[in-house]
Nucleic acid binder design. Structure first.
Length: 512
RNA sequence: GGUCGAUUCGUCUAGGGGUUAGGACGUAUCCCUUUCACGGAUAAAACACGGGUUCGAUUCCCGUAUCGACUACCA
């Protein structure tokens, strides 16, 4: 039995794709690639009320950004289309009817009010979990309790109805989860879930079984929130007679809040000031705006690497993986069982690693873009030099310009704190001499030359360079800390250096 | 409440009947550096609790606690 592995990611287009969803997609992708199989995307849009325009595109763009685009999807369909459940609508009813004919499902005519009343009644009677099940259905309006003629009449008259699965009263349902092992559930804790809604759409439960079967899905890798309904799904496979091809299940641990309890949510992003969505997203219905990792400056490879380690590890001490290496190293056996708290520091660390691995030229491209956004220009070779000098201090591409802007823009003011502590007559003297030497210097202005001239200037005045170094930095850059100074002098050039020294000498006054 | 699941440093985790319980992020200290950062080194830091089983349990079993998911004509 070496069937081709086929897995699917099945989000519903109800808003921005949550980072947990992205991880689910990633694990599906990794598994598919590892097994030489296919990764499909199916849009689960059976709830028309929750449809959000743009959400599908958001999903597509997110996966593209990360380089984990599906092999089959609404945009590049394979043989199992359509890939949107709304477009598969005509397919589902026959399967629901099949279940009715086999006695595993039935029509129900209860109105929402009647369902509420039932729940209230049960709650009042102190029934622990009020549900539509093998006991309560005997008191409701459905094809199990109503005379056959009346059922036909109601159906014929166009009265709204749903189709519910008929869960047996006593049956042990077992499923072998790839991550959790055997999970046993008794059917008496399950309820008669709606399979077909009154609007003619299937619910998730029906649609996902039918579609997974029709799309020849071999492994269902999804979030742990689905674990409680997995037994129902197993039952449905059995009722359809599809047990032989039932996919294997793997329920992924949840992504948790950084500070303790609960599932990671949009609120956490706001509270802690970091993104939990892949891309920026502005909800057309609510006007909510959420920040994305992409726009925050996370590199796709770094983000992917970070994400892959949220609940999985390769079993050795390696941490940096390309997508290809992740595919090679991945296995569901090494996915953990327990929920994972989200630590943005780790994400930043990954980003730094990937940023530093880039060449100066690659980094220069980011820098140039940011420079031009401010209406300035910089030649490529200089941008590369700047990038080289600041790359070690950057977490995000935007930091390159933040850390390096002083090299293109001369300081107009100086850090007062440093000035009052470090600026003194010794500095003024040495800087004066240094300026003279620079003026007279006609060779190639290298970092080495910049340094030897400065050393000569301090020696001539009998002043220790070390004591005034920070003041010199202040004079040229405006601040007290930054990258190594001599390469900076070299980058800004001799003329600019002289100008800056002059300006500092005029502006900064010795504190008396 | 019920069902199901989970529980190793602050966080992500390795490990597994006998270990100095390993690594990474973060934190602290030192070194490097004429600053900051990077880098290097070092340190503090964990098996939720209680019973079994066993010569021996963090590891296996059972409870308890805690946390979480689910409990819709949402997915």
């Amino acid at each position: 039995m070496n069937k081709e592995v086929r897995v699917r990611f099945a989000p519903s287009p109800t808003g921005a794709l949550h980072i947990g969803g992205v991880r689910t997609a990633l694990y599906n992708y990794l598994f598919a690639r590892k097994m030489g199989g296919k990764f499909l995307l199916r849009i689960e849009d059976t709830d028309q009320n929750r449809f959000v325009p743009g959400a599908e595109e958001y999903i597509k763009e997110s996966l593209n950004w990360l380089g984990i685009a599906p092999d089959e999807s609404p945009w590049n369909p394979g043989d199992c289309g359509p890939y949107r459940q709304s477009e598969r609508k005509p397919m589902y009813m026959q399967y629901a009817m099949d279940l009715i004919e086999k006695g595993h499902a039935y029509y129900a005519f209860d109105t929402p009010d009647e369902l509420d009343a039932m729940r209230e009644r049960l709650t009042a009677a102190r029934v622990v979990s009020p549900q539509y099940n093998s006991i309560t259905r005997t008191q409701m309006k459905n094809s199990l309790t109503l005379p056959e003629d009346e059922v036909k009449e109601r159906l014929a008259s166009g009265e709204p109805y749903v189709i519910r699965v008929k869960i047996p009263r006593k049956e042990e349902v077992r499923l072998n989860d790839m991550i959790r092992g055997w999970v046993l559930v008794h059917s008496n804790s399950l309820d008669d879930k709606v399979l077909m809604k009154s609007d003619g759409m299937p619910t998730y439960h029906l649609a996902n079984i039918v579609d997974d079967h029709l799309m020849k899905i071999t492994h269902v890798i999804r979030g742990e929130e689905w674990l409680p309904s997995a037994p129902l799904h197993v039952l449905l496979y059995k009722y359809f007679g599809w047990e032989d091809t039932m996919p294997q299940f793997a329920h992924l641990p949840l992504l948790l809040k950084p500070d303790g309890n609960g599932k990671l949510s949009k609120r956490d992003a706001e509270k802690h000031g970091f993104p939990i969505f892949p891309l920026d997203w502005s909800d057309p219905n609510t006007g909510d705006i959420v920040a994305g990792f992409r726009e925050a400056g996370y590199l796709p490879d770094a983000f992917l690497n970070f994400l892959s380690f949220l609940g999985w590890n390769p079993g050795d001490h390696r941490e940096l993986f390309t997508l290809e290496e992740l595919v090679e190293a991945f296995s569901v056996e090494r996915i953990g069982k327990s929920g994972t708290k989200f630590d943005i520091n780790k994400a930043k660390w990954f980003n730094e690693q990937y940023l530093r691995a880039k060449t100066d030229e690659e980094l220069a491209a980011y820098l140039i873009a940011d420079v031009e956004k401010e209406g300035l220009t910089v030649e490529a070779s200089k941008a590369a030099q700047i990038a080289h000098v600041v790359k070690e201090r950057a977490t995000f591409p935007a930091d390159l310009w933040k850390e390096g802007r002083f090299m293109l823009i001369a300081p107009s003011q100086f850090d007062q704190d440093i000035a009052s502590k470090k600026w003194n007559t010794d500095t003024e003297t040495v800087l004066g001499t240094y300026r003279e030497k620079l003026l007279q210097f006609s060779g190639e202005f290298t970092p080495e030359n910049a340094k030897s001239l400065l050393e000569a200037a301090s020696e001539e005045n009998g002043i220790k360079l070390g004591k005034i170094m920070q003041a010199i930095r202040l004079a040229v850059t405006g601040v007290g800390a930054g990258p190594e100074l001599m390469p900076v002098f070299n980058i800004i050039g001799k003329e600019e250096l002289i100008k800056r020294i002059s300006f500092a000498l005029e502006t900064l006054k010795v504190n008396s």
